[in-house]
Design a protein around this nucleic acid. Structure first.
Lengths: 345, 345
DNA sequence: ATCGATAATGTAATCGATTACATAAACAGC
DNA sequence: GCTGTTTATGTAATCGATTACATTATCGAT
């Protein structure tokens, strides 16, 4: 054993053991085919024997990177995002990147905090899961800013790669399902109005209704904000509508809102799906186990995270290289127990 | 502007602008009071003007650290852990640490993967939220291993600092509540038998029963594994018990199991809390909004995460320094709608 | 004045990996 | 055999911040 310094083997130690220069060891690791078969073997054995592992700080210093990526998500406590995060994590750690996580909504992130994460050469790139970050936050025109990728949400008219499902198509799918069950009076609980997902889902909802020639009075579009609480409020809104002019089915722009809605309706002795059919969006874990189990639109969260991470790392490695084609994320209508045919009466 | 190199200001640039040496700039940042008032001012202004921010790779290289900590949790998609993670993240990023996240259960982490995260000088320390990591994984006796802290779960007889609630006390609190409502036939849905939390919660359950001189036949202790699915199974177990010899109340070792349980009971027309009182443990987000809203024991997840992170960073900074006293995490019985007094009949 | 102690600052080596450039060896073509 | 090309490897500068050590300035006490 010829190591020094607290016993962590360095590239030097490997080189010494293999009787080569550090340059050669480095090459074995980075460009194996620029080294002869024989030396490569010897070096690999030496690496094995010393238990050498790279010092990322040194490499990053030399290469001018940080080895870290930022994941900015609206709410870490929301299991929707943690699934996406899981996908990101799997890919990122495979490539040796660390992750910096930050919440953007609870509490809302201010420009200073954002800049402190984004503009202080702490990261090589960022995956942003929040389409409501003010555009101005990104302004500071440093030439070589961190690479950027959006996932799930995005900022419209922004020439940044994004990875997300076709929200409009999903909303059409959901609404069509309700129509297919015979419902004619269909309402919609939206996400926050300034949110891009809300807008697309609302558009899909309206498109489906138009297609089927169904009306949707303003009263039947209830503004929510994706949270359970806003679902509860939506229920109160529905309850306050005149009994003979209520939707018989509701499309909720998120599962969470559907849960709140169902919960509050339950308190008021309204039965789902008997009295009111409800369909959600996202298919979070709990949807399969709520009472009643929630019919919803499934989106492949983990795969979205993986794709976003892969793309970001690709950009980091070579900002100019063309992006690989965007994968298509398949949506799926998951039929469970919260929707039912309109009673015949 | 006298910067070079892709325009990212270095400590050199600050030094030049302030007409001091790099050493002085560094000192202004690390030991402000070893620098005269006047120079400090000049340097700070130069930092401001250049927009200098530290290069962590360089600092870490010099200081022999990595600036990263590992958070190993059983399941990232579980909102219980993501809350703890949020606490960890808040503290860690405040101290300039990056986070490496890894799942330990889905799929189960093998020794190679673990070692690859833990023993490859990628991290300065680790926070482990999974008490079921085989002890042997930690064996490899490198002198200066990453610092270690457990949170929520832990490994018994292991001289490692841990941060967790008093699970036994919580279980007593939960069971006492059921007894207080008049229940005499009380069952328990446990976590996985090899899990330390399960064991403590079971012990608390038994302790409370013993205190009140209540029996608990083997049949009333139902083994689960903390998941929703195992709650569903527990419900089937309960339904299969003879009607005249069933618990009238159940203490579930996790909220998730309580949800699954309630859901399955609902399918079978058993009403909670009318026919059966149920209390959970953890107080996850959804507990307040399930149907019925879940009575449960609240634990301060975020604060646990914060405390663990602070302690870990403390250790990283100075492994020998005495640990600050462990905070006491307060438990709280949250009364909601899933438990009710035993009917008088 | 002189000496010593203290405070303020500078000089330069250092952390460990990468890589431009230099060198050496091997080989092909004539 | 000579020249030019290719392949394999080594030498040493470099990334940016920290810090041991050296130097200089300041001040008080005698």
């Amino acid at each position: 054993m010829s190591e020094k310094r607290g016993n962590i083997p360095r590239i030097q130690d490997v080189a010494k053991m293999a009787n080569v220069s550090t340059a050669t060891v480095s090459r074995v690791l980075s460009f194996p085919d620029r080294v002869s078969e024989a030396t490569r073997e010897v070096v690999l054995q030496a690496i094995e024997k010393t238990g050498y592992t790279i010092n990322h700080s040194a490499r990053n210093l030399r290469k001018g990177g940080t080895g870290a990526i930022l994941v900015l998500l609206p709410n870490l406590a929301n299991s929707f995002f943690s699934r996406v995060l899981k996908g990101i994590e799997a890919v990122a750690s495979g490539y040796g990147f660390n992750i910096l996580i930050a919440d953007s909504q609870f509490p809302p992130i201010d420009e200073a905090t954002f800049g402190n994460l984004f503009n202080t050469n702490r990261i090589d790139g960022a995956i942003i899961l929040d389409g409501n970050i003010p555009r101005s936050y990104f302004k500071r025109a440093t030439r070589q800013k961190p690479q950027l990728v959006f996932a799930c949400e995005w900022i419209s008219d922004c020439a940044v790669t994004t990875f997300h499902i076709d929200n409009l198509a999903g909303a059409v799918m959901a609404t069509d399902h309700l129509v297919g069950l015979g419902h004619r009076k269909i309402g919609h609980v939206t996400g926050p109005t300034n949110n891009i997902l809300s807008q697309h889902r609302l558009a899909g909802f309206e498109q489906s209704l138009k297609k089927h020639n169904l009306p949707c009075p303003r009263d039947w579009k209830i503004t929510g904000d994706f949270t359970i609480e806003s679902g509860v409020k939506a229920a109160r809104h529905w309850l306050a509508l005149p009994k003979d002019n209520r939707p018989t089915a509701l499309f909720c722009a998120s599962d969470e809102m559907a849960f709140g809605l169902i919960s509050e309706l339950h308190q008021n002795a309204v039965k789902v799906p008997d009295d009111l059919s409800i369909i959600g969006f996202d298919d979070v874990e709990f949807a399969a186990h709520s009472i009643p189990a929630l019919t919803t639109i499934h989106q492949p969260r983990r795969r979205i995270g993986e794709a976003a991470a892969r793309a970001l790392i690709h950009k980091i490695r070579d900002a100019e290289a063309p992006m690989p084609p965007q994968p298509v994320f398949e949506l799926e209508l998951v039929l469970r127990a919260s929707t039912a045919p309109l009673p015949l009466c």
